[in-house]
Simulated scan of single mutants.
Amino acid sequence: MSIDAFIMGFAFIMIHLLANELIPSGRIQRLKWFSFSGGLAVSYVFVYVLPSLHKEQILVKQNVNYFTMESELYFVGLLGLLMFYGIQKVVRKAQLNSKPGKARALFWLQILFFGVYNMLVAYTIISHDVLGVQAVFYGIAVGLHFVAVAHDLWREYEDIYNQVGRYVLATGILAGWFMGMNVHLSPLIESIIFAFISGAMILNVLKYELPPDDEAHFPTFAIGVVSYTTVTMSLKFFFQW
């Protein structure tokens, strides 16, 4: 296991255990924090996730004879988005219209799904041997994404999240970390996993990290987008990421 993989895995675990300690308590500072984090996350989707999904689609089409179109992996990504949106929709509806006991039970389902999501994200990062400066920049974006998701789950049911939920999410990271180091899947399966979590990540970034109009601090959001995009695109240009 490389030191980069160890550091990223450990950092992702600690993020879920301490996510709400990392967020400023003051309203203005918190809005700026989420706006900047959202800017980084949106930039990450456009300068890394979508181009990487396109590259995976090209490789799969070249190496798998029965993939004859140019959109199979995009369809898998759409399924990932659809599945996570459906789960979240069921949970939100239950919170509004159901008895508290049923709503809390469905919240557990959401926690479990995000545990699996964390496992697949961690597996993809570790198994693709993201190293060095590349690991730092992608690790920051994914780490802030985890903070935003964890904070949103914490706001729904603070007691469940603090007592058990955060440990389920951290265990998902640990499981993906272990899989990435010890499980070797075929390139096609890895591409399908990447496509699935890409769709789910796009949904979660736009849903959890893109701040609503009344809570957004646009200058800070723009700084996050421009700074992360500029640095990442420069590194892509010079180091052929």
Rank of each mutant, 00 (worst) to 15 (best):
M69K: 07
S127C: 10
K102L: 14
Y66L: 04
W108C: 08
V136C: 03
V136R: 09
K55P: 00
L206I: 03
T68Q: 14
G132P: 15
V147E: 03
Q110S: 13
F34A: 03
A5T: 15
D214M: 02
F218I: 06
P187E: 07
F6A: 12
L18W: 13
K55T: 12
S2G: 13
K61P: 03
T229W: 10
K55S: 13
F10E: 09
V164M: 00
F218Q: 03
G80V: 04
K61N: 15
V47W: 06
G172D: 04
F237C: 05
V49L: 15
K61L: 14
V205G: 01
L153G: 01
I189Y: 11
A135G: 12
Y138E: 04
L112Y: 14
F6P: 01
S98G: 10
I192V: 15
F84T: 01
G101C: 08
V183N: 14
F146I: 07
R155K: 13
V226Q: 07
E56K: 14
W241A: 03
I197E: 05
V149R: 00
L18V: 05
S43V: 08
Q134D: 04
L17Y: 08
I23R: 07
V76N: 05
V205T: 02
A150I: 02
H151W: 06
V116A: 13
M233C: 14
M1Y: 12
R104Y: 07
G77H: 00
F137S: 01
G165M: 08
K55Q: 13
L78W: 00
Q163T: 14
G224K: 02
V64S: 14
V168H: 12
P219F: 09
G165A: 07
I160D: 13
M83N: 02
V64I: 15
N162C: 07
Q240P: 01
Y117L: 04
A122V: 02
G199N: 05
G199S: 07
K61G: 14
D129L: 12
R27F: 06
Y167A: 00
V231E: 07
N65L: 11
V90L: 11
T124N: 11
Q88D: 06
V183I: 15
Y157S: 12
V60C: 10
G176S: 05
K102M: 11
G26K: 15
A103G: 09
A195W: 09
V142F: 05
W177Q: 10
G165Y: 11
V231W: 08
M201E: 07
P219V: 11
L109H: 04
L109V: 14
M83Q: 03
L235Y: 10
V60M: 15
Y48L: 02
G180K: 13
F114W: 11
W154C: 01
